[in-house]
Amino acid sequence: MVDFLRFLSTLRIYPTLANYSFENLSRLIGCSTITFWKLFNIIPKYLTFLHMFFDSINDLNYFIYFNSNQLKSLGVGIQCQLNDIDIFCSLYNKYQWKRLIQFNLNLQD
């Protein structure tokens, strides 16, 4: 069982990772939710530390929805259109944030 996973580039060790359970993952640092979905077909539900580049607002919503109550540190990197910023911001209005949040937004016209 693994409780911490950090990946900053495309992993080439798929067979090795298949031997581990990531259901109880508590700390996740990643470069891409697309890469995460390719490696694991789960949404971690016990994250206390999440720093990830999210490839879509939907991915961001999935990860936050299941983990918002226990997250102590959240780092969000995302590229979105200016007209989608309201959708992005509405995700954060649903939750009572008491912990550290860091945003790295790449806004495009």
Rank of each mutant, 00 (worst) to 15 (best):
M1S: 14
M1C: 05
V2A: 12
D3M: 08
F4R: 10
F4M: 11
R6H: 11
F7K: 08
L8N: 15
L8D: 14
S9K: 14
T10I: 13
T10Y: 08
L11F: 09
R12G: 14
I13V: 14
I13A: 14
I13Q: 11
Y14A: 12
Y14M: 11
P15C: 06
P15F: 05
L17S: 07
A18V: 05
N19H: 12
N19I: 01
Y20Q: 12
Y20V: 11
S21K: 14
F22L: 14
E23R: 09
E23L: 12
E23Q: 13
S26M: 13
L28R: 03
I29S: 02
I29C: 07
G30S: 09
C31N: 08
S32W: 00
T35R: 10
T35I: 08
F36V: 00
F36G: 01
W37A: 09
K38D: 15
K38M: 10
K38W: 05
L39Q: 09
L39Y: 04
L39E: 03
F40I: 08
I42M: 11
P44W: 02
P44C: 07
P44V: 02
K45S: 13
K45E: 15
K45A: 14
Y46F: 10
L47F: 05
T48G: 06
F49Q: 04
L50K: 08
L50H: 04
H51D: 15
H51F: 10
H51I: 13
H51M: 05
H51W: 12
F53A: 01
F54A: 00
D55G: 00
D55E: 10
D55C: 02
S56T: 06
S56P: 00
L60P: 00
L60H: 01
Y62Q: 04
I64G: 02
S68R: 08
N69S: 14
N69C: 06
N69H: 13
Q70D: 07
K72T: 06
K72D: 12
K72G: 13
K72F: 07
L74M: 07
L74F: 08
L74E: 02
G75R: 04
G75E: 04
V76L: 03
V76A: 01
V76S: 03
V76T: 03
V76F: 01
G77S: 11
G77E: 05
G77W: 04
I78C: 05
Q79V: 05
L82C: 08
D84I: 01
D84M: 05
D86C: 09
D86E: 14
F88P: 05
C89Y: 10
C89F: 12
S90P: 00
S90W: 03
S90A: 12
Y92T: 02
Y92W: 15
Y92I: 00
Y92E: 02
N93H: 11
N93R: 12
K94D: 09
Y95R: 00
Q96L: 09
Q96T: 09
K98Q: 09
R99I: 06
R99Y: 13
R99N: 15
R99K: 09
L100T: 13
I101L: 13
I101V: 14
L105F: 06
L105W: 06
L107R: 05
L107W: 03
L107T: 09
Q108F: 11
D109E: 13
